[in-house]
Design a protein around this nucleic acid. Structure first.
Length: 182
DNA sequence: CTTAGGG
DNA sequence: CCCTAAG
């Protein structure tokens, strides 16, 4: 007989239960970014990643497919961590979460509204749904954006130096605004 | 904890 | 990103 029973260990359920148990708060909250030409079916966001910058292959299939992993227990997920030997024998971990375009845009807008330097405010308002990205991160990113904006102004020859296929290039309008707000 | 800079 | 110094 078909017992019609479900598998609690089927990950999806497990994740939910785990999150419940851990008292995890908000994931499906404040999903910005309007994935423009994405089929509604695949627009379902991926837990914990509000803005995975979903991309599509030529066939239209979702490329940013992300099998939900164990989900962060409370924000300290060991995502992209690389162990780096410190100069004094210690071992430190370095996380890395690539900044998406929408994140950059939020940052820029935040600075335009509250002014550069008000990182905590910007963090609370524009980045309320991002558990990671601390005010320090915003500050660091802004520092990089400034550098990028300057690097782009002097030479518009090679819009992006090298065959840099990695990391998204920031649209010029954004960089220009960065300059202004500097 | 927050901002600013160097690492 | 991480770590530290000053507020």
């Amino acid at each position: 007989m078909a017992l019609l029973k479900f598998n609690p260990s089927r990950m999806g359920m497990t994740v939910t239960l785990v999150k419940e148990a851990l008292g995890a708060h908000n994931f499906l909250q404040d999903n910005d970014e309007k994935v423009q030409s994405a089929p509604a079916q695949v627009q379902q966001r991926f837990l914990g990643v509000p803005d995975k910058d979903i991309q599509f292959s030529a066939t239209g299939a979702v490329k940013g497919h992300k099998v939900l992993k164990q989900v962060d227990s409370t924000g300290d997920s060991d995502d992209n961590v690389v162990s780096v030997p410190t100069s004094k024998g210690g071992i430190r971990r370095k996380h890395h979460r690539a900044w998406t375009l929408s994140e950059v845009m939020k940052l820029v807008q935040g600075v335009s509204r509250y002014g550069a330097g008000r990182w905590s405010e910007i963090k609370r308002l524009a980045f309320a749904s991002y558990s990671y990205r601390t005010s320090v991160d915003l500050k660091d990113k802004w520092r990089n954006l400034l550098k990028a904006s300057l690097a782009q102004i002097s030479s518009n020859k090679g819009i992006n130096s090298r065959k840099n296929v990695t990391s998204m290039r920031i649209p010029e309008p954004i960089l220009l605004r960065v300059r202004e707000l500097c």
